[in-house]
């Protein structure tokens, strides 16, 4: 399977990326090499093979339901210019 530059541009948009022409050319080459490589999987019969999730049979640890306050909340807010207690984004029209 090969992707043309329009398809790659569309996929890039999905990832919220716009590409320069040079970047687009590079990405098309990259992605087609990539797909050629992963197309090898077709050689294998994977029907009865379980997807690999984790390296061994570990169980998800569970924490107790206890409230803890992150003390440096102000530092999180300080990563953005002051807009009161909010983070601001360009106006979104309500759907």
């Amino acid at each position: 399977m090969k992707l043309d530059s329009d398809e790659v541009r569309a996929i890039a948009m999905e990832g919220r990326l716009s590409l320069t022409d040079a970047e687009l050319q590079g990405a098309v080459r990259y992605i087609n090499n990539f797909l050629e490589m992963v197309d090898r999987f077709k050689e294998l019969d994977l029907k009865d093979v379980e997807p690999f999730a984790f390296a061994e049979s570990v169980e998800c640890p569970l924490r107790e339901d206890v409230v803890g306050v992150f003390r440096d909340r102000d530092e999180i807010l300080a990563a953005r210019p002051a807009t009161g207690p909010f983070f601001s984004v360009p106006r979104i029209m309500e759907e």
């Binding site: 924490r63 339901d65 206890v66 409230v67 306050v69 992150f70 909340r73 999180i76 009161g84 207690p85």
Partner: peptide
């Protein structure tokens, strides 16, 4: 629950100041 699903921030935010229950995980 008392706390959020993946971090220990309080799950009860009614009437609290915006962004008062945040931490690296839920942010």
């Amino acid at each position: 629950t008392k706390s959020k699903i993946f971090c220990t921030c309080s799950a009860d935010y009614t009437n609290d100041e915006p962004n008062s229950h945040i931490c690296p995980v839920c942010m």
